[in-house]
Design a protein around this nucleic acid. Structure first.
Lengths: 245, 245
DNA sequence: CGCACACTTGAACCCCCTCAACCCAAGTGG
DNA sequence: CCACTTGGGTTGAGGGGGTTCAAGTGTGCG
């Protein structure tokens, strides 16, 4: 049962009243984000709604229950999305990286909180104004639908993990998912703490630590640093993750 | 660790080559389904893509991993959506009732299986043909986005439940959610078995049974029949569900 | 009646949690 | 340079909530 203090500092807004269109044109995560749905000619329509902000590590910039008046688009860094119980128990529902879109809420309040675990930069959009833009460009809506459907698949996968997998299977699944998004590289970077991993996998930090140690002893992984893990037997890792072992 | 046998019987298609538009016009779940996004004048466009099928209880009509060539719209009965591990462990990701839309998958294969737990009737749409219709009617797409965002919120809530709540808290949360969808009535109907509830809440059927008994002994609920549960102290039930007790 | 199926209840066990100590690296300040 | 602090990570010992295994209790239906 984790108990972290909530911080409600306002994020530091940094830039860009007018040079925004160029900023969007040269944005290096545009291809991975929903912004790809809008072509260069119309990009200014999107750009004039956006403002950029930098968030320090540890800062919470979305609070569960607050009125959802903004959408966010991550351009760098990593964010944890989580829900909490009144007594402080925390469940991280996902980690968001560059290109990730935040704020897909039906109701008018956020259903989760978001905290930067590294220094993060985000694009912010006013909700009502972006929604009128969505109306003019159904392509964005279509893209958002794809995004939402994809998240739904991931959420179902995570429910299977949380409801039915053992501790070691959860860890293996987590490392495997991380390695897939890392691409070809054999080592994976973990920007989050053991406590965060535990809160994501429905475990305690001690169990996470013990699990990593066990996987290391069984030569499945090597732990270069606590935050840098090398996969030594991807096949065995996958077997463990799927419950075959 | 539950192990149910997969059945792959083809569902019995029942009706309606041509009288379909009238059928859609008079459909009693239209207002609760995505079909509400299309007006009476254009309803025939939707109707001519649909075919109706009846599914017997126990029949699986979506198999995880199969090519996703169809969308479904539930018009009566209850369906369980689930994922399985190779060794038979099962996680139910949700129960779908009348008006529920199924098949929101990004990839070309279904990410989950669907089995009728009661006799069920569904409208079926060919995927490619419905997708061209979506293109013509962005209102449907918008509606689907709302549906997806809503499911995402529910999924996050379920992750919190599976990752961080105790057995009794899970049961209370489940009963509370069921009572909310039941409306004003104080008694809730549970069409699924204890095993299904367990597979939904990440527990065993014995733990579910014991939990119900305990809630009954503490006068929170009354168990008229195993499938019919009366809520006697909604406030206490809500307190337990949120972890306050 | 008797079989099947779902549910309930009991007893023993075990995986993971809790509590606690310890390690280690990175500051910080005298 | 060393003493001290702080934050994250690891490791150990013991306990408990939920599972496992097993028996018993309805209830519907041939």
């Amino acid at each position: 049962m984790a108990g972290t203090v909530l911080r409600r500092d306002t994020p530091r807004v940094v830039v860009l009243p007018k040079a925004m269109t160029e900023h969007c044109l040269g944005c290096d995560v545009r291809a991975q984000s929903v912004c790809r749905a809008i072509d260069d000619a119309n990009l200014h329509r999107l750009a004039e709604l956006a403002s950029v902000a930098e968030i320090e590590a540890g800062q919470t910039f979305i609070n569960e229950g607050d009125t959802a008046d903004r959408f966010f688009n991550l351009t760098s860094g990593t964010v944890k999305l989580y829900k909490m119980l009144p007594d402080g128990r925390q469940q991280i529902t996902g980690f968001a990286g560059p290109g990730h879109f935040l704020g897909l809420a039906v109701s008018d309040t956020y259903a989760f909180s978001a905290e930067a675990i590294e220094k993060v930069t985000i694009c912010r959009f006013s909700r009502p104004r972006l929604q009128t833009l969505l109306h003019d460009f159904p392509a964005i809506e279509r893209c958002l639908l794809d995004v939402a459907a994809n998240e739904l698949v991931l959420a179902q996968e995570q429910m299977l993990l949380l409801g039915r997998k053992t501790a070691i299977e959860r860890l293996a699944s987590f490392l495997l998912a991380r390695s897939r998004m890392a691409g070809v590289s054999r080592t994976i970077h973990l920007p989050m703490t053991r406590q965060d991993i535990a809160d994501y996998l429905g475990l305690t930090l001690e169990t996470v630590s013990r699990g990593f140690t066990r996987l290391r002893n069984e030569k499945v992984i090597a732990i270069a640093q606590p935050q840098a893990i090398e996969i030594r037997d991807a096949q065995l890792l996958a077997a463990i993750a799927s419950g075959a072992n």
